[in-house]
């Protein structure tokens, strides 16, 4: 189970990171970025399903305790993942004037998923404490997990792309995110 969570964080981490890094003003770059993760992102997310399934089967009481404590963030993460998966298919099939909106939905879905995953990690690490310090730690963890995913996402893009898309990357995640 730990192995599937690790593999999930690395594999889906890079395609979530690529989603968060999508530029808002450059259609060609968005196309090549999304095409670069096209064949992989779906399989990568399957590791999450396997990890949660293993958690349920191997540690049922931990499963119920953890997912009850993290009910809302999990629901929000699922909403983000739904947005992402749907935007991926609709962006090429909808009228081209809506394509940018779907790309934005892809970016927002990715961002929601990375932030909630980081937040859940933070809550889990502090043992679901309800103190302000624990909540602040969870928020910090949300930002840091997003930054980490952006980092492996950019590493993936350096490996897979060339030209403008690649040279635009060293600008760093902080300038590209907004």
């Amino acid at each position: 189970m730990g192995l599937s969570f690790l593999i999930y964080a690395i594999l889906d981490g890079y395609d979530l990171g690529v989603g968060v890094l999508l530029p808002r003003d450059n259609q060609a770059q968005r196309d090549s970025m999304i095409y670069s993760i096209g064949p992989f992102w779906d399989a990568n997310e399957t590791w999450l399903v396997m990890a949660i399934g293993l958690l349920l089967i191997a540690f049922p009481s931990a499963h119920s305790y953890i997912l009850q404590g993290l009910y809302l963030p999990t629901a929000i993460m699922l909403a983000g993942l739904i947005l992402r998966g749907v935007a991926f298919d609709f962006r090429t099939k909808a009228p081209s004037r809506f394509k940018q909106k779907w790309d934005l939905a892809f970016k927002l879905g990715s961002l929601l998923a990375t932030l909630t995953q980081g937040y859940m990690l933070g809550r889990y690490v502090t043992g679901f404490e309800e103190t302000n310090a624990a909540l602040a730690f969870a928020l910090l963890s949300a930002v840091c997990v997003t930054a980490g995913y952006c980092f492996i996402g950019s590493a993936w893009l350096v490996m897979k792309t060339e030209g403008n898309c690649r040279s635009a990357l060293p600008a760093g995640p902080d300038t590209v995110i907004c």
């Binding site: 009910y71 809302l72 629901a75 929000i76 909403a79 739904i82 947005l83």
Partner: peptide, 10 residues
């Protein structure tokens, strides 16, 4: 209720 409303609207 919140999550149900969220899923329904999505």
């Amino acid at each position: 209720a919140l999550s149900l409303a969220m899923y329904l609207s999505i």
